[in-house]
């Protein structure tokens, strides 16, 4: 019999794979690696803020919501700056450094609040946020992941071609009566929302690698869109499932195994060239 927590982990892993498998090629083609990096900072900031509020109001589901809302707010802010004519790197750089600084301050507050409420084993929760807690996922978490993931998946699917077009030639979309700014902002929101949704399963530390590498690898291997998507999806799926099984057998956190596996595949391909 497969234990239930393993089943939950597998289902979560599959959902995560589908989202990242679809998103990763776009991240690569549009050159959004820096944005995912900023998302990482923002998620950490949101999580710390969420934990402070969670402690104060004794409600830890706040962590996810606060992280989600802050991340979406921040990616929209970045998109707005870009739409006002700032280069992508400038917009992200300014916002990300501000967020990173605030995170340090927020940690200070968090420690103070934690010290005043000694009965919460929250330090563990901070760590598990960083490394992912795939095996601790509750049925509620899973439901949320699947429902939220389904929404993101269908929005992404519906607008996938538009995302390709704005990546190819945003000014062209604009010139032919399309709303390039809307598509760009929506893409950023999807990146942020996906990050917020999966961070507890994937873990903050490895989030960027698992978001960026599958697309990079797929684009290296093919220049056919269907194949790129196929490779990216297949890769994230097999890496997630394999890492969960290995983690179950070895007790090493699955996020670490998944990241190392991706790194090995990438390294192998780069060397073989």
């Amino acid at each position: 019999m497969i234990p239930e927590y393993l089943l939950r982990a597998l289902l979560a892993g599959i959902m995560v794979s589908v989202l990242l498998g679809m998103l990763s090629p776009l991240i690569n083609m549009k050159g959004l690696a820096f944005l995912t990096h900023a998302t990482f900072h923002t998620l950490l900031f949101g999580a710390v803020l969420g934990m402070i509020l969670g402690l104060i109001f004794s409600n830890f589901s706040l962590v996810l919501w606060v992280a989600l809302i802050i991340t979406i707010f921040v990616v929209i802010l970045i998109a707005l700056l870009e739409n006002r004519g700032f280069s992508s790197d400038t917009a992200i750089g300014v916002i990300a450094s501000f967020i990173a600084g605030s995170t340090v301050l927020a940690f200070g507050v968090l420690y103070k609040v934690m010290a005043s409420r000694p009965y919460f084993a929250l330090s563990q929760s901070v760590v598990s946020y960083l490394t992912g807690e795939l095996f601790l996922i509750t049925l509620n978490d899973l439901m949320f992941l699947v429902l939220g993931g389904a929404v993101i998946f269908f929005v992404m699917l519906a607008f996938y071609r538009d995302f390709l077009y704005v990546s190819f030639d945003a000014e062209g979309v604009e010139a032919y009566s399309g709303n390039a700014r809307f598509y760009l902002t929506l893409l950023y929101v999807l990146v942020g929302a996906t990050g917020a949704l999966i961070v507890r399963t994937v873990g903050l530390i490895t989030l960027q690698v698992v978001a960026v590498l599958p697309g990079t690898i797929a684009v290296m291997l093919s220049n056919d869109l269907r194949k790129i998507l196929g490779i990216s999806l297949g890769l994230t799926l097999s890496v997630q499932v394999l890492s969960i099984v290995l983690a179950y057998l070895t007790d090493i956190p699955p996020s670490g195994i998944a990241t190392i596996m991706l790194g090995l595949v990438y390294g192998f391909l780069v060397l073989r060239r």
Binding site: M29, E171, G172, L225
Partner: peptide
């Protein structure tokens, strides 16, 4: 019609 170098050819259209 923009100058063609402004296009991102990583996108496999």
């Amino acid at each position: 019609v923009p100058q063609s170098h402004s296009l991102n050819e990583r996108v496999p259209l």
